[in-house]
Amino acid sequence: MHEAIVAQNIVDTAVAQAPKKGGKVTRVVISCGQINALNDEAIKFGFEMASAGTICQGAKLKIKHIPLKAVCKNCHKKFDFDLYNPKCSKCGKSDFSLGDDAPLLLEEIEFEEQQ
């Protein structure tokens, strides 16, 4: 995935969603799929860059990787698709049908408790 733009998008959304009184962001949870995948290291680095000087600075970023389900047409085994090793986990064949890949989602934002 294009981590720099994704990171900028996350920061922009968090800033737009911030409560009126302000308050810093402490944690952001995002999720991605297997083809729509994110590289954890790159997105964390991008987030650090994009959040500098904003209310997101220093916030923790949690990235959930949602499995992509595949069904083998040869042995009918249901398995998790791996883009870097695309084959059935049981019989090793590459003829399978794929479910829908999870989209890139900004799930939740946690703000600092205000006194």
Binding site: I5, V6, N9, I10, T13, Q17, P19, G23, I30, P103, L104, L105, L106, E107, E108, I109, E110, F111, E113, Q114
Partner: peptide
């Protein structure tokens, strides 16, 4: 305070 967003990233694109 936790806000559920559930918005697609890159939604603008």
């Amino acid at each position: 305070m936790k806000i559920k967003v559930n918005k697609k990233i890159l939604e603008r694109n």
